[in-house]
């Protein structure tokens, strides 16, 4: 019952994911950003990217724990919206902040560990974004799923990026804790346990049929 009622709201993922961008645009146009507005734009594209990434790996556990099969279909939009914010974040860093001075940018990437892991997370995210369509899934077959397991490296890298750039580590540690719990819920032993608990006789394998997006 709860399944059906929640599924009706799944479309909200689109307006909600775009809301931070809309608010940022409004605040920029109305001059509500701080005097260090490049910093604001950097933060307000980075945080949504991280939130959406963490949410994208929450979908499968939501199915595992609560049996919300519809949540699995949200992985694609959440991942792609995250990629949108990551691109804007990177564009802010390279173009707005560093004026496309590639020498200076390369120095920063090599010197600052938080930029290094952030760049790594971005580079790993690119192939996932490029293959988030049915044609790529067909072409890659079994490898598609293997490729998309990269998200379990990307999210910890993104959390590490946030942790290493923060002067107060606590928010990043919360993201880290959430990521840790979500990764634990991927463990086969826990998945089976939850599955058995929720619906005796239900098979974890059934989820596999839902991966098509």
């Amino acid at each position: 019952m709860i399944n059906i009622s929640l599924k009706r709201f799944a479309w909200l993922v689109h307006p909600l994911a775009l809301l931070p961008l809309a608010l940022l645009a409004v605040d920029t146009a109305l001059d509500n950003l701080s005097v260090n507005f490049i910093q604001d734009i950097t933060e307000r594209t980075g945080i949504p990217a991280l939130v959406l990434l963490v949410l994208s790996i929450a979908c499968t556990p939501l199915n595992t724990v609560f049996g919300w099969k519809w949540a699995v279909a949200l992985r694609k939009p959440l991942g792609l919206y995250a990629f949108l914010y990551v691109c804007l974040h990177l564009l802010t860093f390279t173009a707005l902040d560093y004026g496309l001075d590639w020498g200076a940018i390369a120095t920063e990437v090599g010197e600052k560990r938080y930029i290094l892991v952030g760049t790594a997370a971005f580079l790993l995210l690119v192939p996932l974004a490029l293959t988030s369509n049915k044609a790529a899934m067909r072409r890659l077959g079994k490898n598609w799923k293997r490729l998309h397991l990269l998200v379990y490296a990307i999210v910890p890298l993104a959390v590490l990026h946030y942790l290493w750039l923060s002067k107060d580590p606590r928010p990043a540690l919360l993201f880290g804790a959430a990521t840790g719990v979500l990764l634990l819920l991927r463990l086969p032993v826990l998945r089976r346990a939850f599955s058995a608990l929720r619906k005796p006789g239900a098979s974890v394998d059934r989820q596999k049929t839902d991966t098509a997006m």
Binding site: L24, A25, T28, A29, D31, V35, T92, A95
Partner: peptide, 26 residues
Amino acid sequence: RRQFLRAAGASIGAGLLVACAPSDGS
């Protein structure tokens, strides 16, 4: 200055929305 910032901010916002690189960065 505030007017300059606002104008700059608005153009940046517009730039972000259409996901194109602001060429006037420097």
